[in-house]
Design a protein around this nucleic acid. Structure first.
Lengths: 232, 232
DNA sequence: CAGCCTAACGGCACTCAGTGCCACTAGCAA
DNA sequence: TTGCTAGTGGCACTGAGTGCCGTTAGGCTG
């Protein structure tokens, strides 16, 4: 037997081969009706080897989950500290969209399966929850250093909102068979979330009254208003 | 053998007995280490009977899930159509808090388990997702009839935010051992969400410029500004 | 009160996911 | 060539979940 896992690259290839074989079988004859034996056989390996590459049968559908989480962490580490945290989080979660868009065929098959098989739907929800936790952790750290009293709560809520927006865009795009402009939908959806969770919450309540004479030059008015708005 | 399931009330009692026995065993010797045989034996029934009352071993931890969902649906059906939909949704999800608070001891044990055992955490996440879907469906209907263009997206995002706020309050309360004032935390958390998802989103973007002579009486200024602000 | 009849129950056997163990061997190093 | 390492595959085992069926409790009818 050739030994694929001897080299790291070979391991990756076998992983992908197993995942591909599994998805095809799931689509062809149903998830429950497909046994791990069949998946392993289709990939030309033993059943025991399958469980060395995936912890469980349903993990095979979300094979690249860990990579994406790692990318998200990198995005956070490399993010400009002056950018709006919510904006950064949206950008990070956009990586999920990218990875789905990169392999449309698998994404569509997975979508069909997660819509059909309850246990796979649950598995996907759990996967999304892991993204969401990473988002929440980042946001909590940022909100805290901004001196937000309710940082933990706001972080959890914002992370959930971002994840939901992401899922909504993703599902819409998958339902269109990958035809929709995913970037545009994502921008719209994230704009809604960013807008809802801007730092406005307390500041928006602040009433401001400007009193000037009619002889004040326009540029002075603009400068003063701008200064007042951006002061904090 | 006495036949508990002969009457609907007897069925409920056996369900609760099974759930209680299961939770105690899970806490005592660990979730994976507890077999369904042991749970059934502890409740004085056969293993086969257990699976007539619960679809799966982990379902036993979330036994009253269906009842709560039903209560939420009732809440929506009976809700004042003029109330803010997000507010109604928050009230409905508050039922979850109530049901947890009603049986503190079980809630605390379940909390320990879901924090410890990954598969139970996933199961809980899936359970929350079901609440969230119910919320989203209600909100989508209400937003749509309000003529909201992006009703579906806003509904999904708001539902996720509400669910996250609810979970945050719940976890905080459980970590305090049921000592915190759960109603107060809930009010604060829901206020944050309601505030973030008020209809302001589009309106807040609208810039308004008022031009009046210095001779305009104050009450006229106020009246005109107020009319302009409340117009839509 | 007696007998029937429905449905809950328990046991049995089976499939399959997941795991520990171990012997085997391909490929690398000395 | 020889030895070592690590991926592999087979075997056996546990436990979840399911179909099937004989048994019987308990309500209902006469």
């Amino acid at each position: 037997m050739t030994r694929a896992g001897a080299t790291p690259d070979g391991r990756r290839r076998l992983r992908r081969a197993l995942a591909a074989a599994a998805v095809d079988l799931f689509v062809a004859k149903g998830y429950e009706a497909t046994t791990v034996d069949e998946i392993a056989a289709a990939a030309g390996v033993g059943r025991r080897t399958f469980f060395r590459y995936f912890d469980a049968k349903d993990d095979v559908l979300f094979a690249n989950h860990d990579e994406i989480v790692a990318e998200m962490e990198e995005t956070f580490a490399a993010a400009d500290p002056d950018r709006d945290p919510v904006e950064v989080a949206c950008a990070a979660v956009g990586l999920v969209l990218d990875s789905y868009a990169a392999e449309l065929d698998v994404s569509l098959k997975r979508f069909t399966l997660t819509r059909t098989v309850p246990s796979l739907r649950d598995k996907e929800v759990a996967t999304v929850d892991r993204y969401q936790r990473v988002l929440a952790r980042y946001l909590r750290a940022r909100f805290t250093e901004q001196g937000d009293e309710t940082a933990s709560l706001r972080a959890a809520v914002a992370a959930a909102a971002i994840a939901a927006a992401n899922n909504h865009v993703l599902r819409r795009w998958l339902r269109s068979g990958g035809q929709d402009d995913i970037a545009a939908s994502a921008a719209e959806a994230f704009a809604l979330v960013i807008d809802a969770f801007k730092v406005q919450d307390a500041a928006a309540e602040t009433t401001m009254v400007a009193v000037m004479t009619t002889s004040t030059p326009l540029h002075t008015v603009i400068a003063k208003v701008n200064a007042a708005l951006t002061e904090p």
